[in-house]
Design a binder for these strands. Sequence first.
DNA 1: TGCGATTAAATTGCATACAATATAATTACC
DNA 2: GGTAATTATATTGTATGCAATTTAATCGCA
Lengths: 145, 145
Amino acid sequence: MDKYSCLKIENQLCFPLYACAKEVVRKYKPFLDRIDLTYTQYITMMVLWERNTVNVSELGECLYLDSGTLTPLLKKLETKGLVRRERSREDERVMVITLTEKGLALRDEAVDIPAQMGGCMNLDPEDAAQLYRILYKILKTPSEG
Amino acid sequence: MDKYSCLKIENQLCFPLYACAKEVVRKYKPFLDRIDLTYTQYITMMVLWERNTVNVSELGECLYLDSGTLTPLLKKLETKGLVRRERSREDERVMVITLTEKGLALRDEAVDIPAQMGGCMNLDPEDAAQLYRILYKILKTPSEG
DNA sequence: TGCGATTAAATTGCATACAATATAATTACC
DNA sequence: GGTAATTATATTGTATGCAATTTAATCGCA
């Protein structure tokens, strides 16, 4: 145990987290290609399928993304005809995102994807539950002590 | 339980993985800023601190990254004077990356970072061990059945 | 009521990521 | 030995991500 052992990749917890997230998102790609969405676009649509209408900051809170990422992404979804972007009447600063008919219809094509991905991950239910619990524990940890 | 419940964000396992990885990397930033490295540059240096010399494809296997990411990144580390990039004598296709004196010296400044990050994550040892085990289980799953 | 502070998005700049393609060197094999 | 196939990087193109800044609208409050 030398003084640098803490700097070994194999002793890191953050690294497998980083690598695993990338690999899993990469595994989604073939399935998402069929409905012409990227992973980030897909999770954005998920929020809209649940809520129908959200504004940019609410979306950012749900997805842990900021307007620098969301603004161009939402413009792309608008170009694809999946969402509408309109300023709120009550507060012109707020950009309201609404699902279109086409966006709603896409849900029926996406409904098989979670099961297909589950097959890829190959985790038994206990591990999946543990992983879920621990990840949300980390996510819930306040930013600054 | 409607037929679309599988598409809810809260029922996803991939999403907290994706979000958690991003948040943890973001928490590294203040510590990495002090030694002027990005997270990806940091894990690249970690491999070099362990091995002293690697080529691009070995690095790619360790870090789950390809040459499209690594080539520009390694050029930046070279510009900073932390590594040397030289073609192998035996096989000119191979780009050999070697730690410089300056790159080696940086290890002493990085040695506190893992402990500082551990403080941020706020996980008890059992959860950390579970998380580590499960993440590597996923990473080890072969790409195609 | 008017103006400074705050807030919500958008923009800018930099650094990844990865698929697909291109290039150059090496191997296989006839 | 010479050429097709393979291999290792590099390049190109597209899509994030995030910090910092800007812009526009709204709020707080004297």
